[in-house]
């Protein structure tokens, strides 16, 4: 429907079916996760360390899920290995222009849990579990988790 036409979009009359648009803009605070997203602008990937449990999280969290203590920020290595992967040829609506894209879970040496990210490589081919990958940071920060992505290790 053209923008200059005011009207109601009707798909069917029996039963009567119309289009209903409803949208929301959220005020989304990263709150206690803010440090992680700010650090991406300094080319730093933060994880978390629980002193009580001696457990290192590959995905940032301010409190330990095992003992409840506050964690300390740690810098994750910028090189890791593919723990698992998938290449998406369809997706949710906001990401349909991105397909095909590859998601990976990254494992880091000495870190107890994983990190989910996109893998950018030519044609989304020659990807395997155990393959070395390295973190890259976008120069123009958008303040979301896509400010970091991975490429095959050079």
């Amino acid at each position: 429907m053209k923008n200059d036409v005011k009207g109601t979009e009707i798909y069917k009359t029996d039963p009567l079916i119309k289009r209903w648009d409803y949208s929301l803009s959220y005020t989304h605070s990263y709150a206690q996760d803010s440090e992680f997203f700010k650090a991406l602008g300094r080319n730093v990937l933060l994880g978390s360390y629980c002193k009580q449990c001696n457990y290192k999280y590959g995905t940032y969290r301010k409190y330990c899920m095992y003992c409840g203590s506050e964690t300390a920020d740690i810098e994750l290595p910028l090189k890791g290995k593919i723990h698992t992967f998938t290449t998406c040829y369809y997706s949710g609506e906001p990401f349909m222009n991105d397909v095909p894209y590859t998601l990976i879970l990254v494992e880091f040496e000495g870190i107890d849990s994983l990190f989910m990210s996109r893998l950018i490589n030519k044609n989304n081919t020659k990807i395997s579990i155990g393959m070395g990958v390295m973190a890259k940071f976008k120069s123009l920060q958008k303040f979301d988790v896509n400010d970091v992505y991975f490429i095959p290790e050079l």
Partner: peptide
């Protein structure tokens, strides 16, 4: 914060 913006898709 961490998963959905990557291409939020349960099949993935």
């Amino acid at each position: 914060n961490f998963d959905y913006p990557l291409g939020g898709f349960y099949t993935a």
